[in-house]
């Protein structure tokens, strides 16, 4: 069996045994009903006492064949409102970038915690979309309103 597959099986075991509070993460089902370990769905709760706190935000995690040498691709829904999320939903985060801080020892738990941190603590140096980026930089009031509206939309997202 490939390293990607055995590693993902272990990731699943570890996650089921123990994972951070309020998060969920699980492999999708393939058409034939079996688990597709290379595609996961996860929910990221916004941090308490931030404008993100009311939502649980959905992401998909797609693992390449040469995972964990290469990082997985993490996506929010299209047009997700966040300065470091591309219009396609792709997350711009250094630990998910092979050229930057991705390391094979980074686990799914590390990834979802990293994404949670990015939500309420955007990186001002890597803009990925116009609307959220502009508002975050120049109009905090608009930014806060938009984020809170979005949080309400994802209030009831769960597994």
């Amino acid at each position: 069996m490939s390293l990607a597959k055995t590693r993902l099986q272990e990731e699943r075991k570890l996650w089921r045994k123990d994972h951070p509070f309020g998060f969920f993460a699980k492999p999708e089902k393939s058409a034939d009903g079996s688990l597709d370990l290379t595609n996961w769905r996860a929910g990221i709760p916004g941090r308490k006492d931030t404008i993100w706190e009311e939502g649980i935000y959905p992401i998909t995690i797609n693992f390449p064949n040469d995972y964990p040498s290469k990082p997985p691709k993490v996506k929010f829904p299209e047009n997700f409102y966040h300065p470091n999320v591309y219009p396609s939903g792709t997350v711009c985060l250094s630990i998910l970038n092979e050229e930057q801080d991705w390391r094979p020892a980074i686990t799914i738990k590390d990834i979802v915690l990293g994404v949670q941190e990015l939500l309420s603590d955007p990186n001002p140096d890597s803009p990925a979309q116009e609307p959220a980026w502009k508002a975050f930089a120049k109009d905090k009031e608009l930014y806060t309103r938009k984020v809170k509206e979005q949080a309400k939309r994802y209030q009831n997202y769960n597994a």
């Binding site: 390293l3 964990p68 040498s69 630990i95 801080d101 390391r103 094979p104 020892a105 980074i106 590390d110």
Partner: peptide, 19 residues
Amino acid sequence: SVIEEYLRNEIKTCPVAGC
């Protein structure tokens, strides 16, 4: 076996995050 497959014959950054 895992680290050797990862390194092959190259010099690479340690797989541990932050190292």
